[in-house]
Amino acid sequence: MKKILFATAAIVALASAQSALAADLGARTYPYATKAPVYAAPIYNWTGFYLGAHLGGAFSSNNNFSGLGTGNNSNGRFLGGLQVGADWQFAPTWVIGAEGQYSWLSGSVGAAFPGGYAYTNSQRGLGSITGRFGYTWGPGLLYVKGGYAYSDNNEKVTLAGTPVGFGTNGDHRNGWTVGAGLEYMFAPSWSAKAEYQYYNFGNATFTAPAALVPTGSFTTDDHTFKAGVNYRFNWGAPVAARY
């Protein structure tokens, strides 16, 4: 009888241990039942340095030189160049930055004067150093810009086709510029832009030769339209993530 009771107690104890073990194993399956983390979509980050290139056209005002014939001022001239800059995104939908830009120009501008005189400016390029401020919504950036401008002038005055000495009393190489544009981030580290930029280099008046003095002052300015692409550095990690 004692042996039977002992065997029965052993069987009950073994069954209880197996039940506890099964319950413990079942409780440990909870990590596999939880939902997977929600995908974290990165927020676009405009902070960093960039280097790029652009193409476009330039148009000069056609009402300079007291209404005289102004050659191809109003006709488009081809331009192409480079830009380098840096941006900082803050607050978090605003962007502030600085940019240096240079555009090479084709063609020339000028005017024909009474008596056979002609003025020509084979303007070789336009440069600028500007600040810019913009609003961003993810991959898009709408911005305005403004600052210092430089005109690489190559001027001459001719009489019946022969070069003659001349003088002006204004600096029409250094001036100011303003503009606006739209930039779009189309791939990691790459963005494309479309931009309008106006350059103004002030008024100048001929002081020689005497035949040109009565024509008064002329203005050197340019309207430009550009399309370009930028490669952006230091975009290794987004600023934040949206869940």
Rank of each mutant, 00 (worst) to 15 (best):
A98I: 06
V109C: 01
L141E: 10
V157F: 03
G146M: 10
G97N: 01
G100F: 12
S128H: 08
V109F: 04
V84C: 05
T120R: 15
W137I: 13
S106F: 04
L126F: 07
S106N: 12
N169V: 10
V164I: 14
W137L: 14
G165R: 04
T93L: 09
Q123E: 15
V109R: 04
P92Q: 14
T93I: 13
N169M: 09
G100D: 12
G161R: 11
G110W: 02
N153I: 11
G131K: 10
A160K: 12
S103C: 01
A91F: 09
Q89G: 08
G140R: 06
F133T: 00
E99F: 01
S128M: 11
F166Q: 09
T158R: 08
T130W: 00
L126W: 05
Y119W: 05
A86W: 13
L142P: 01
V144K: 06
G170D: 07
A91M: 13
Q123M: 15
K156A: 10
G147Q: 09
D87S: 03
D87Y: 01
G97S: 06
R124I: 03
G161N: 06
G138L: 08
T158V: 12
T162A: 09
F113C: 08
A111N: 14
G125D: 03
T162F: 03
T120C: 02
Y135F: 14
E155V: 07
A91P: 01
Y102G: 03
D171F: 12
Y119G: 07
Y150D: 06
G134R: 04
L141F: 05
Y150S: 06
Q123V: 14
Q101I: 12
P92V: 01
L105Q: 02
G116S: 02
G100Q: 10
G115D: 12
F90E: 06
F113D: 00
Q101V: 10
T136I: 00
L141S: 12
